[in-house]
Structure formats: C-alpha cells, structure tokens
C-alpha cells in the first residue's frame, strides 16, 4: 500500500469477474506520511482509507467485468463498520462480492480480514460511467496489470 498515493491494493489473489468476486492483498507500510497525523505516537490506518481499500478491490473486479470499457466511481457507502484498529505492518485480505449488477450502477459487499479477524465491512455503490479520458483508462489498465502480474509471481 502507498497510502499517500491512494494505491491500496498490492496484489489480486483471486479474481472471478463472471461471478463478481475478488480477493486482494494489501500490506500496510511501516511508515507513511499519513501516520504523522493519524495519529502522532499512535499510527493507525484511517477508516476512510480502509473503505477506499474495499472500494478499490471492488473496483478492479468491476473493471474486469466491464472489460475496462467503463469506469466504476464510488457513489455511496452504507453499513460501514470499523471493527478494530489497523496498525503499520498489518497484512490485509480484502474480499468483495457483487451484490447487484444494475444498469449504470453496481453494488458490492466487501470486508477486510487480518490475522483471521474481521477488520471492517461495508456495502458500496458504484456509478458506472464512460472513462472521462484516455489517461485515466490507461492508468487503470497499467495498475491492474501491475497488481495482477504480482499474482503470478
């Protein structure tokens, strides 16, 4: 994870776009500028970044289903629960499942587990839209290639 660059997913471990399921891995760094403020002397991953992590895992699954022809943008977060603190060095297993494939939108149910313990969970709604430009599309393809390639290594 590069928290300050919003690169939350390190590796896609399992991906089943047809059935709408993804499992990803994310390793919390030991140091990050984020921890300087959150919190001094007690570094913890902010809850909003855990939600972002679940959103990105869901997003890569949706991008795969959409064959990178459209982009899912996070639109709504419901039933989010932060169950325990996440400290530097934690290894996170991020799981997301498609709950509903609508027309122009999708909803997923996602959760994060670390050391066998549930960290957080949420329902996430995405608006599915055309890519606003080729730069973003290219960036998504590159990032997906990186985190999928590390799956094979």
């Amino acid at each position: 994870m590069l928290l300050e660059y919003f690169q939350m997913i390190d590796r896609v471990e399992e991906l089943d776009p047809e059935n709408g399921r993804v499992v990803a891995r994310a390793e919390v760094p030991m140091e990050s500028p984020v921890f300087e403020g959150h919190f001094p002397g007690t570094p913890l991953v902010p809850g909003v970044l855990l939600i972002e992590t679940m959103a990105q895992a869901s997003g890569f699954m949706l991008l795969s289903r959409l064959k990178f022809e459209k982009m899912p943008f996070l639109a709504n977060v419901t039933l989010a629960k932060m169950r325990t603190f996440v400290e530097p060095g934690a290894v996170l297993r991020v799981e997301a499942e498609l709950e509903h494939d609508g027309s122009g939108f999708a909803k997923t149910a996602a959760h994060i587990v670390s050391d066998g313990k549930k960290i957080c969970d949420s329902r996430l709604m995405f608006r599915i839209m055309p890519f606003p430009n080729e730069t973003l599309k290219g960036n998504m393809l590159d990032r997906f290639s990186q985190i999928s390639r590390s799956q094979a290594e």
């Binding site: 709504n76 609508g102 027309s103 939108f105 709604m125 608006r127």
Partner: peptide
C-alpha cells in the same frame, strides 16, 4: 435515484434500463 433503482430492481427482480 441510484438507491431507488437498486431497490426497484431488487423488489421486482428486474434490471431497469437506466443507461438506455
């Protein structure tokens, strides 16, 4: 309206063609 569309889809077991 996305929430409403989701609830309508679920309630009626359909996929309303919002994109179209």
């Amino acid at each position: 309206f996305l929430d409403i569309a989701f609830a309508i889809d679920k309630h009626f077991g359909i996929k309303i063609p919002l994109e179209q």
